[in-house]
Amino acid sequence: MNFHSIAAIYKFEMARTWRTIGQSIASPVISTVLYFVVFGSAIGQRIDAIDGVSYGAFIVPGLIMLSVLTQSVSNASFGIYFPRFSGTIYEILSAPISYLEIIAGYVGAAASKSLIVGLIILATAGFFVPLEIKHPLVMLLFLVLTSVTFSLFGFIIGIWADGFEKLQIIPLLIITPLAFLGGSFYSINMLPPFWKALSLANPVVYLISGFRWSFYESSDVSVGLSLLVISIILVACILLIAWIFKTGYRLKP
C-alpha cells in the first residue's frame, strides 16, 4: 500500500475544503439548520409527534442524511471531475499508485468532508430541537457507511460526467428528490398503501429509516434491511468502479 500517495491525494483534497470553507462546510450546515429553525422550532410545535418523537426532533436524522448524501456525491464527483476537466489527471494516472489507492484518497477525502458536515449539523440541531441518540455507534456506522457509499457513487458520477451540468444533475434532480420523498420529513407508514409500496423502491428510505432508528428506535423498515440495502449499494459502486478502472472508461483512451 502506497500510503504517501493516498495521503497526498487526501491532504490535497482536504486543503481545498479548508480553502473554500464557506462553500464546503458553512453553506450546507446553514441551509440545513434553517430547516430546523422553520420546521423544528417554528412550525414543528404545531405538528403532532410522530412515533412519540416531536416533529422537530423527528426530521433531524432525515435532514442530516439529506446533507450527507448530497455532500458526498458533490464532493467526490467534483474531486475527480476537476482534474479531468483541468487536465491534471495525467499526474494521477501516471503515478505509481493502484486504483484502490486513488479511490482511498479521493473517496476518503469526500467522505470525511460530508462526515464533518453531518456531525456539525447534528451538533447544531441540539440547539434547536430536543435530541437523543439511543445507539450512537449504530448512528456513526450509518453515517460512515452512507458517506463512503455515496462518495463512491459521486466518484462514478465524476468519471461519467463530461460537463459541469451533469455534476449538478445527479445531486439536484435525483438525490435531493429521493431524500425528500424518502421519509426525511415524514414516516412512510403515514402514506396510503400505494405510495408506501412505491416509496419502498426508494433506496434512501432505508438509509433514513435505519439512521433514524439509531436515534429514537423508531423506523419504517427493519435496521437489518437498512444495513443490507446500503451494503448492496456499496458493493454495486465498488464493482462499477472496478470496471471503470479495468476498462479505463473516460480515463484512459
Partner: peptide, 16 residues
C-alpha cells in the same frame, strides 16, 4: 488555485 509550493509538494507525495 494552488500555490507553487503545494502543487510541487503534492507531486512528490503522489509518487510515494
Amino acid at each position: 488555485f494552488e500555490t507553487v509550493w503545494n502543487t510541487v509538494s503534492f507531486s512528490r507525495g503522489l509518487f510515494g
